[in-house]
Amino acid sequence: MRTTIPIIVAFLAGTLLIVSFFFHPETIWIGDAKEVILQWMTIVGGFALVLGVVSIVRVNARAVQRKSEGWFYKLMTVISVFAMAIPAMMPVTKESVGGSIFYSIFPDSWMGYLGTGSNSFYDWLFNYVDAPMMETMFAMLAFYIASAAYRAFRARNAEATLLLFTATLVMLWRVPMGEAFLRLFSDNLPGYINTYVMGGFNVAVQRGIIIGAALGAASMSLRIILGIERTYMGK
């Protein structure tokens, strides 16, 4: 039963989503089934969030309890989870769900700081703590790209040399200083790179990978719907 029921559910849900693509949602219920299933998925996802919070708290709380290495940072992680979540979930006005009870206990002056609106506590944490940290992590890519390119970009054989040459041309073309350099050879060179490298070779390769991946995805979906592929269920 632990295998049969999930296979039936997967088959019905998958088939319904495929079939609904071919029907008008305005005129027949089956055409609208896709929307309904997607909404169910969002609801299930919301409940699953609890699992995530439990996991993150359990893993980190255990480390804090044992005072293992770096326990302070783990404590900060747990505090951060609740510091972002709790004020954002609190009622923003007296009319919000649970607002009348909440503001009979706490002062009205808290209203502006709760929820996710402008000037709220969440907004402040996002703009001045979370966003700069995210930007910093993303900016680190510049350093990592440089070191990866230095280490991996070697003209080992004819194909790698061709790749190296093309990548250098594109890197030059994508920045004003490089483009000015390319124009020293020919005014048309940047245009040629755009037309032939980006619009030609690049598009051919991208389409090849996209079509292949799409077929792979479709084939995998079919195997799942028909119950042939069951590894994702732990079987």
Binding site: A146, A149, M171, P176, G178
Partner: peptide, 24 residues
């Protein structure tokens, strides 16, 4: 930001050239 990006691209090209010279 274009000037900074220009310099970063040129540095990567320079590093690739140096790396390849060392490799050969």
């Amino acid at each position: 930001g274009m000037d900074a990006q220009s310099m970063a691209h040129l540095l990567i090209i320079f590093l690739v050239i140096v790396g390849n010279v060392g490799f050969f």
